[in-house]
Every structure is written in structure tokens, then in C-alpha cells.
């Protein structure tokens, strides 16, 4: 069970948060111009890697803010948390 450093509230127990899947998948600005395949790529395709993964998290039972997290899925180490719209601090 992680301890997550919410960028707005500080360290809190994982039970206060919910995970929203892979981060940095931007909703297309012009969906109508996309082919079925391109839209499907946005809609369905998600990475599930062993190693450094970028994720969206929501402090659901706290400030209700969404933010991003860099997590190593092989050992669950959280390498960074950062606000929405900010660039990831690690590659």
C-alpha cells in the first residue's frame, strides 16, 4: 500500500486515491478528422509495462484533484508526482 505525495495535500495513504490509468494521452482536438484506427488508438490502446510508467491519479477522498505520477511498476517505487499540465520531471 503506497504512500502518495499529493502535490496539493502532501503525503497520504493510498486508500485516499484512485488510479486513472496511463497519463499523457491527450484527447484529440479534432476527433472527426480521425480514421477509425486513429480513434481506436486513442480510445483503447494502453501500455502496461514493467518498469517506469506514467499514470494519472486522483485524490478522490481528499482534495479531488487529478495529478500525474511516475511509478516503477517492477518495485512500486514512486519516482515523482506532478500537477496536470506540467512536464514529467523524469524521462
Amino acid at each position: 500500500m503506497f504512500i502518495i505525495n499529493c502535490p496539493y495535500c502532501g503525503e497520504r495513504d493510498q486508500t485516499e486515491f484512485s488510479c486513472g490509468g496511463e497519463a499523457h494521452i491527450e484527447r484529440p482536438k479534432q476527433p472527426t478528422e480521425l480514421s477509425d484506427d486513429q480513434w481506436a488508438e486513442y480510445l483503447f490502446m494502453r501500455k502496461n509495462i514493467k518498469g517506469i510508467q506514467f499514470e494519472r491519479w486522483n485524490h478522490a477522498h481528499g482534495c479531488r484533484k487529478w495529478f500525474n505520477m511516475v511509478r516503477d511498476t517492477s518495485n512500486d517505487k514512486i519516482q515523482a508526482v506532478y500537477k496536470m499540465g506540467e512536464k514529467p520531471p523524469v524521462k
Binding site: G20, E26, R27, N58, A60, R64, W66, M84
Partner: peptide, 13 residues
């Protein structure tokens, strides 16, 4: 409510 918040905060800030 969560879904709407999600769109507001992340897609349409």
C-alpha cells in the same frame, strides 16, 4: 461527478 471533474481538470482546464 468524478467523470466531469476529470474532464474539467485534465482535458478542458
Amino acid at each position: 461527478l468524478s467523470k466531469l471533474e476529470d474532464y474539467l481538470q485534465t482535458e478542458w482546464p
